[in-house]
């Protein structure tokens, strides 16, 4: 077994670090959009708004029931074939679309569960003082549901950051794509991918710490 080429690895760190902001950007944008979409889906499901409820159920079923990679290929290669205007969809757009829709389906379910978990008395109290449904949702239910949903939502965000690596199959040069190129040039596959792996790992670890901090903050109201 050859010895690890440490010098190569150290040299690779700044190169790959340069792609990290782009990876985080992909995940960040997709996360914000997925969250907004998931909240809408969750509220539609909880209130059982006719037609939209059924559409949401089918949507969630499809995007949870098929692999993310298949969805990405559908957006990138499949849709432009059907609708020629959609050839404008580039790899980045397809990635963000795919991540957004895929993860919104999962997050909608965990937000829905968190909303249902808020004690019924909270709704009654809000309604009794004359709040409208949207005031009730914004001021009472969603803030309380957030606390319950936070750990699972952070889990999905972590998952999403790692899933951005699939973008390289659409020709997007993010952290994984860049690593692949570097490795192919140097033939030092192990060195290159272990550097990338550690980078993902550190980012996820930082997020886990952030999650702990947020949980403590959100739990402040509920501790004796």
């Amino acid at each position: 077994m050859d010895v690890l080429n440490v010098e190569y690895m150290l040299g690779l760190v700044p190169v790959l670090l340069g792609y990290l902001p782009f990876t985080l950007q992909l995940a960040g944008v997709a996360m914000v959009m997925a969250l907004m979409l998931a909240c809408v889906f969750a509220v539609v499901r909880v209130l059982g708004i006719p037609v939209f409820n059924q559409l949401t159920i089918v949507f969630i079923s499809f995007f949870r029931g098929t692999p993310l990679l298949v969805q990405l290929f559908l957006f990138y290669y499949g849709l432009p074939q059907l609708f020629s205007v959609l050839t404008v969809i580039d790899g980045v757009t397809a990635t963000i679309m795919g991540l957004t829709l895929h993860f919104s389906a999962y997050m909608a379910e965990s937000i829905r569960a968190a909303i249902i978990g808020v004690d019924r008395s909270q709704t009654e109290a809000a309604v009794s003082i004359g709040m409208t449904n949207s005031q009730l949702m914004r001021r009472i239910i969603l803030p309380q549901a957030t606390r319950v949903a936070l750990p699972t939502l952070m889990n999905y965000f972590i998952d999403m950051i790692k899933a951005t690596s699939l973008a390289f199959t659409l020709g997007v040069t993010e952290l994984m794509g860049a690593t692949q190129k570097e490795a192919a040039g140097s033939f030092l596959y192990f060195e290159a991918f272990i550097v990338a792996a550690v980078m993902y790992w550190i980012v996820v670890e930082i997020l886990s710490q952030l999650q702990k901090y947020l949980e403590i903050r959100l739990n402040k109201a509920y501790s004796r």
């Binding site: 004690d119 009654e124 109290a125 809000a126 003082i129 803030p143 109201a221």
Partner: peptide, 12 residues
């Protein structure tokens, strides 16, 4: 105005 048996204060 309503006063509930289980108080029902807004927990947040």
């Amino acid at each position: 105005a309503f006063v509930f048996q289980n108080y029902a204060l807004f927990a947040n």
